[in-house]
């Protein structure tokens, strides 16, 4: 039960993040909004890290530099998401975002890109994606 509550709250917060960035972008630029959100998030995460210490900074040396840079995608993600919300609203934005996200994750898994464990294509995943796209079309009616 507690797990379900955490998952629900986590999902709500992901959407809220996009909404908050959109709201902040109304007053200052979208890039600035991204900068503030990421900076304050980093400060809080760093404070938590000081207490939790669940890893050392030296651990990063064991990771390919390319993968360390992944966090930088946030700039593009926030900018495109905020602009999309301004154009087509939250529901359609999150729907299209999730479909693209699951599609690419699926393609990465099938091909074993970036050293992830290869997975076979299965029918249910195609049906699931088709249903999601159908849902977006219904949304627009």
């Amino acid at each position: 039960m507690k797990g379900i509550l955490f998952a629900l709250l986590g999902g709500a917060c992901i959407t809220l993040q996009g909404v908050a960035n959109t709201r902040i972008s109304q007053d200052i630029g979208t890039w600035q909004a991204a900068t503030i959100t990421q900076l304050t998030g980093f400060i809080i995460a760093a404070l938590i890290w000081v207490f939790v210490r669940d890893g050392k900074l030296g651990d990063f040396k064991k990771v390919k530099p390319l993968y360390l840079a992944g966090g930088g995608f946030a700039a593009i993600i926030i900018f495109t998401e905020v602009t999309a919300i301004q154009q087509i609203g939250v529901t359609l934005t999150i729907s299209a975002l999730l479909i693209a996200q699951l599609c690419l994750t699926f393609i990465i898994d099938i091909n074993g890109w970036f050293g992830v464990v290869k997975q076979k294509m299965k029918m249910p995943q195609f049906i699931g994606l088709a249903m999601m796209i159908a849902g977006v079309i219904i949304l627009k009616f």
Partner: peptide, 30 residues
């Protein structure tokens, strides 16, 4: 708008893979 949202989703997917690689070597908060 849908194209922009899809670009965001594609980057979320890639970022998740990359972050996972980091997470394999260290903790969630790090």
């Amino acid at each position: 708008g849908i194209l922009l949202a899809a670009i965001a989703g594609a980057f979320v997917s890639m970022q998740t893979v990359f972050n996972n690689k980091v997470n394999e070597q260290t903790g969630s908060w790090t």
